Simulated assay, not measured.
Amino acid sequence: MARRYVRRKQPTLIVEIEPEQAVAAGTMSRENVMDYVWRASPGRLHFFFERLAQMLAAGMTVHETLQTLSGSSLGRRLSRAAASMVAPIAAGSALSEQLDRYPELFPSHVRGLVRAGEKSGWLDRICAQIAEEYRARQQRSWGQALVQLWFSIPLVLVLLVAPLPRIIDLGVSWYLGFLLRVSLPAFLGAIFLYYLGKIVFNLRAVRPLRDRVLYGLPVAGAMIRQAAIRRYLLALEALIAAGVEIQEAMQIGAEAAGNAVIEMQLQQAAAKVRAGVPIGAALAGAKAVPTEVRQSLETAERAGSYDQAFVGLQDWARQRQATTTRVAGMAGYGTVLLVVGGIVAAAVGYAFLSYFQAIMDRAEEFMP
């Protein structure tokens, strides 16, 4: 590996730093584990891929682009990742190979789309599409933050409000002791379990099980399938337009799905096409692929041209995903409000009844 040095400015001397050691793909170093807990925000990732697309479209090379981005306001994790990719890419490594080193920053569908962009020569356009996806996710993140805050309200109420009426019987000292002995440990334990769950949920070893569960969910599963098919169609369009054979394009495009279950279905379909099965029959076994997509690709295969098919399919997939996301968001937020509202009402009602009962008991003590 080529030696790489960094100069640090000092008053009268230059300090030479040891060459940076590359991190193996998927290695769970301490830095990587922390990135699973505090992931890079969708806003920073949108900025990263948007600038990457703009500079590539302007004619800059990938390593020049990353060298420029490493000094931008990307945040510590993204800046360090970009800086560590510059030398290997300048030496001939692919961008997708370097993204594989940081699975906690760049999910599987992002790495798959970048790989398709490199193979097709559409890397700038693919990065622009990834940036657009992160921009939409950033817009939804505010709503998700409000949902998390709303879910924390019942926990606080149960831990703080429910035992409050016992002050009448046992005094303030008992209540403060209860908060220190019970409420505070329970609250800290809930926070610990939340972040531990985030680490386990994102581990690569857990990904197949996690993706299988998400794939089977009623509302979230539909959103995941539609997003996966839209990315798959984007990768197919880029690869086929670049002259890549359909079976190879299907194999590479499957990596852009972002869900292990859907990726396996699409890879099996690609293997069937490679064995000589028509594309329509091959995709019939992929349950995640809508009938409209399968029939359109089957018609395009018979016609010998996929150009018009992909234009129509991209518009169809975009509209369908937008509609599903809007409906699912309204239904999801409504369900959250009802569930959390019920928990809050139960906690407040319990506290009120306990308070009323304590007052009545104390009043009976003073009655003649």
Rank of each mutant, 00 (worst) to 15 (best):
residue 18 E to I: 05
residue 21 Q to I: 08
residue 21 Q to S: 04
residue 31 E to H: 12
residue 33 V to T: 14
residue 34 M to P: 02
residue 38 W to Y: 13
residue 41 S to M: 01
residue 52 L to V: 06
residue 53 A to H: 10
residue 56 L to A: 00
residue 60 M to C: 09
residue 66 L to T: 14
residue 69 L to I: 08
residue 74 L to Q: 03
residue 77 R to H: 04
residue 83 A to W: 06
residue 83 A to Y: 06
residue 89 I to V: 11
residue 90 A to K: 15
residue 96 S to R: 12
residue 102 Y to M: 02
residue 104 E to C: 04
residue 104 E to W: 01
residue 114 V to L: 03
residue 119 K to W: 02
residue 120 S to P: 10
residue 120 S to R: 13
residue 122 W to N: 07
residue 123 L to C: 08
residue 127 C to N: 13
residue 127 C to P: 10
residue 138 Q to S: 10
residue 149 L to Y: 12
residue 150 W to N: 09
residue 152 S to M: 14
residue 158 V to N: 08
residue 159 L to T: 03
residue 165 P to M: 11
residue 172 V to G: 01
residue 173 S to P: 03
residue 174 W to I: 06
residue 176 L to N: 05
residue 186 A to C: 13
residue 196 L to W: 02
residue 198 K to P: 01
residue 206 V to F: 14
residue 208 P to W: 03
residue 213 V to H: 02
residue 219 V to K: 06
residue 220 A to T: 13
residue 227 A to Q: 09
residue 228 A to Q: 08
residue 235 A to Y: 06
residue 236 L to H: 02
residue 243 G to C: 07
residue 243 G to F: 08
residue 245 E to K: 07
residue 246 I to V: 15
residue 249 A to S: 14
residue 255 E to Y: 11
residue 257 A to P: 00
residue 259 N to W: 01
residue 260 A to C: 01
residue 263 E to F: 00
residue 264 M to E: 15
residue 265 Q to P: 01
residue 269 A to S: 07
residue 272 K to D: 06
residue 274 R to Q: 12
residue 278 P to H: 05
residue 288 A to G: 05
residue 289 V to I: 10
residue 292 E to V: 15
residue 295 Q to P: 04
residue 297 L to Y: 02
residue 301 E to M: 02
residue 301 E to S: 14
residue 307 D to E: 14
residue 309 A to H: 10
residue 330 M to W: 11
residue 348 V to F: 07
residue 350 Y to F: 13
residue 350 Y to I: 05
residue 358 A to M: 01
residue 363 A to N: 15
residue 365 E to I: 12
residue 366 F to I: 12
residue 366 F to Q: 09
residue 368 P to E: 15
